[in-house]
Design a protein around this nucleic acid. Structure first.
Lengths: 342, 342
DNA sequence: GACTCGGCCCAAAGCGCTTTGAGTGAATAA
DNA sequence: TTATTCACTCAAAGCGCTTTGGGCCGAGTC
């Protein structure tokens, strides 16, 4: 069933039917009701491509995901973020379009999406420092919102980020208050902006107490379970091992935890661990007192909000960019305790 | 730049330019070269919506993801599956369209995708037993491939599945060979088809040795870390606790492992654990001998193949449906050992 | 020389919608 | 009464592409 057929059934012109369906005021209420009834009776919805061609919009939002295993995106948080964003999209009549591309072809992907008119806007994931995709998107004139943000760019653009710096600073303070002095940082890849900010927070807290960050206690890499495990083992086997670990992801933290067991150490007693927790649906829940003390921030909620920001931006392209900083909660679990006396 | 403008620059008709671009034989080689050169020079690509409207195709594949936390899809494997499928799509010029919907509106979502002509095909995730979405998609005439399969349906449709039954049967045999007799099963939600098959494999292996499955040792639920943990604790605290666990997912297995530690038991010595491992990028790797003995099957590879099957199906809709059964590898790690003598 | 036949190329229709610009009849105002 | 407005409705153009159905021209055939 298409518009023409439907309007024939109604003895109306396609014009009127289209207007009735789209809520234009020029059509009599009674007529509108008739049209709506017929549409649902004949199970009609407008063809999205035709509608898009006529309006110049696609009602779709693009997410470009680089394929490389190096990238931090095809990872546990992906599903939750998408779920959050998807909620917002579907309540606003947008589709989510995901483009998986070779690592070095991300920019081409943006260009292509724009040229072919496939999407009305873009959500940018996993920004690196001085990320070149941001000026590119501005140049293309494609509305976008960044999940995270990129240091070192003069441009003004919309983003939503967790206050990573503050979160890790607080977590470090918490450990310092417990008497820990040798704290290890197991961070994400520090080309990623969030990782750099976390490290800054960590080091700021140390400096504020007159301590100096020990580079030997700072590790950065892709946040896998294995990486957490091997890094922690190496650190624990040092002559002066850390008494606490600050870890950038739940998955790596599980690796750290495994390393502690391997060395016969009790988490929360012999060694403390704080991790960042993205509140993933399948890791949380259950216990009254969580396993890990963590800096917690729901990536699903972030998805919802970023999507909403982008839709707003598409609706009013001339509004000034917006920035949102979400604060992470410092949630106390069973993985932290006073530093052991030496 | 659109077709008309480009053809004006070339002093050719839009017809010829379109044909040149799409590789039709009616155009002189030299002309085609000129067109191609101009297209790349002026950075032209056809507008996807217009192309779609004219051809009746959208060059997009739909994935409908129910939103409920109950569902097994917004979960760790999602990212990896999508990455695999996305690879295939982008090499064939398809976009991936993800629709996140309320749990009970999945069928509407399919109808709507079809009506509005948004996608050329569908990948069906997380089939339940006698899943009603399968007949629906057939009725709609929308090409589709199921990741997994659904028992109890008479229809013939395309699917790709892991041989879950065989995998769990082999894993159980492996444990039985090690002398284990009280084996617990920590399964996914058994409304899910794969979970039912895994249980069947488990019970078949037991029966083949004249043992009877003990319902008290079988748990099923959403595969979270917390669920693995609490289920395992409950089982370990029984008067006759299991000496081995067969677990349906890596995440739950980590919970099981935590429960073992809580009870001071050594995994692989006091208690054996086998888990299914979807070969997620962030959980594997690193160690020479993996932590868990597992039935392993790459969900990313599954994504690649399912996508390819669907594209083939779209290209030749009259070909008979295809079924692919992937065998899982039984990979020996450090989590299994002989049953302790009582 | 007339005729066919490829090889190339083009005009125009059509995909299904939105939107502009106009028209109609009825109600109100002058 | 005539003019003006208002509330509805419609015809037609246009979005950017593909595709059908020719058309033209030069080469080959008889």
């Amino acid at each position: 069933m298409n518009l023409k057929e439907l309007s024939a059934k109604l003895n109306l012109s396609p014009t009127t039917v289209s207007r009735a369906l789209n809520g234009y005021p020029e059509v009599k209420e009674e007529t509108r009701r008739r049209v709506l009834a017929a549409a649902s009776r004949y199970d009609y919805s407008p063809n999205a491509r035709a509608q898009g061609l006529a309006t110049g919009r696609s009602q779709a939002i693009g997410h470009v995901i680089p394929l490389s295993t190096k990238h931090e995106m095809v990872n546990p948080i992906f599903g939750d973020f998408i779920a959050g964003a998807g909620e917002t999209y579907s309540s606003h009549g947008y589709e989510m379009l995901i483009s998986v591309v070779e690592d070095d072809r991300a920019e081409d992907a943006y260009r292509s999406l724009k040229r072919r008119g496939v999407v009305d806007g873009i959500i940018l994931h996993g920004p690196r420092m001085e990320d070149s995709r941001i000026p590119l998107l501005q140049e293309l004139g494609l509305p976008f919102v960044v999940h995270g943000r990129a240091s070192g760019l003069p441009q003004d653009y919309s983003w939503l980020d967790v206050n990573n710096r503050r979160a890790f600073q607080r977590a470090t303070d918490f450990l310092l208050d417990l008497g820990h002095r040798r704290i290890a940082l197991i961070n994400g890849l520090e080309t990623m902006d969030f990782a750099a900010r976390r490290r800054a927070g960590f080091e700021t807290a140390l400096t504020a107490r007159g301590l100096k960050a020990d580079p030997a206690l700072e590790v950065s890499g892709e946040m896998t379970e294995a990486m957490g495990h091997s890094s922690a083992l190496a650190l624990l086997d040092r002559p002066m091992p850390p008494t606490a670990f600050l870890v950038s992801s739940m998955v790596s933290a599980m690796g750290v935890r495994r390393a502690l067991e391997d060395r016969g150490l009790r988490m929360g007693v012999d060694v403390s661990v704080i991790t960042h927790d993205d509140a993933l649906s399948y890791f949380t829940g259950g216990d009254d007192v969580p396993l890990f003390t963590s800096t917690r921030s729901s990536v699903r909620e972030a998805g919802r909000q970023v999507a909403q920001m982008l839709i707003d931006r598409i609706d009013s392209p001339d509004a000034p960019p917006r920035q949102v900083l979400m604060e992470a909660e410092l949630t106390v679990g069973r993985s932290t305790g006073p530093a052991p006396t030496e």
